[in-house]
Simulated assay, not measured.
Amino acid sequence: ITRYFSDPQYYFQVNDQYVRNKLKIVLLPFLHRGHWARISEPVGGRLSYKPPLYDINAPDLYIPLMAFGTYLVLAGFSLGLYGKFSPEALNWLFVKGMVGWFFQVMLLKMTLFSLGSGEAPLLDIVAYAGYAFTGLCLAVLGKIIWGYSYYVLIPWTCLCTGVFLVKTMKRVLFAEARSYDSSRHHYLLIFVALAQFPLLIWLGNISVNWLF
């Protein structure tokens, strides 16, 4: 399989239709009735995957990066409402967001590694991990508009992100695993889904503290 780490442009081949449909899948994975497998094609005698522009299940970096930027803007605005905004606080939130993204990447990477698969391209995993910020944006926006809505939106975000990652890893990433153990496979998927709750609740807590 072609590894796209050397071709970052692959992850930015998107259009408006792709972005809309991808956001629906990430935010409402229960409603996705299509398949989750990526579309492959032969390129230069090797098996490759079609870019996001032609495959809704392909990972992209446009949405995660835009969501991360939006998350920082909303977080800064939220701090401003409470009179706590400062450039230092925004820098702190940037570091916190990057650490959370890194933890998510490591979670997915170690899960694949434990199954004997190290073949998934790193940027694929970075992209899948970054989709969590789309739901976080909604949760933070809800908190800004009406504080109590956050306590509904953040569990929903955790649940949907967990379902999205489980579906993705089951149909896409695990397809490249060299070994398969059904019971171990299922336990790892459950662990990935449950791990979204503490991680996203931590990221959704807009403060200048590392914890809460």
Rank of each mutant, 00 (worst) to 15 (best):
M98E: 05
S78E: 09
Y128V: 15
G142A: 08
A67E: 11
L200R: 00
G80E: 05
G45K: 01
F174S: 11
S114D: 12
K84Q: 13
K170G: 00
G118N: 11
L107E: 05
N57R: 00
K84D: 13
A58D: 10
K84A: 12
P121M: 07
Y18G: 04
L153V: 12
F12N: 04
T70I: 05
R3E: 11
L72K: 04
W202N: 08
G97Y: 02
V126F: 12
L107D: 11
L136F: 02
F174Y: 09
N91D: 14
Y62R: 13
L61M: 10
L189D: 15
Y82Q: 13
V140G: 09
L90Y: 08
K109D: 11
L93E: 09
Y148V: 12
F85L: 15
T168A: 14
R184H: 08
I154T: 04
I201E: 03
V126H: 00
F102S: 14
Q104F: 08
I206C: 00
P51W: 00
S149D: 12
K96Y: 03
G142N: 12
V19G: 00
Y180W: 13
L141Q: 11
P52Q: 01
V99T: 09
T134F: 10
L136A: 01
S149W: 07
I144Q: 06
G147Y: 10
R20L: 11
R33G: 00
Y49M: 03
P8F: 01
R20P: 03
L47G: 08
M110G: 09
R46I: 07
Y54S: 00
N209R: 13
R178W: 01
F12V: 07
I201N: 04
F174R: 10
V166H: 01
A58P: 02
R3F: 07
T157I: 15
S6E: 15
D124L: 08
L199C: 03
F68G: 01
A139K: 08
G147F: 12
I39N: 06
Y187T: 10
I144W: 00
T134K: 01
T161F: 11
L211W: 15
W146H: 07
G118P: 09
L115P: 07
F12Q: 05
P64Q: 02
S6D: 15
V43W: 02
L65E: 07
G97Q: 10
M169H: 03
P42E: 04
V140P: 06
L61H: 00
F85P: 00
E41K: 07
S40H: 05
Y71M: 06
I154E: 09
Y4V: 02
A132T: 06
E119Y: 01
L61V: 05
M106L: 08
A120K: 04
Y71V: 02
R20A: 12
W92Q: 14
G44I: 04
G83R: 06
E88N: 13
P155D: 03
V172F: 03
F197S: 14
P51G: 08
W146N: 01
V99E: 04
R38V: 03
Y128Q: 15
V163S: 06
C160K: 01
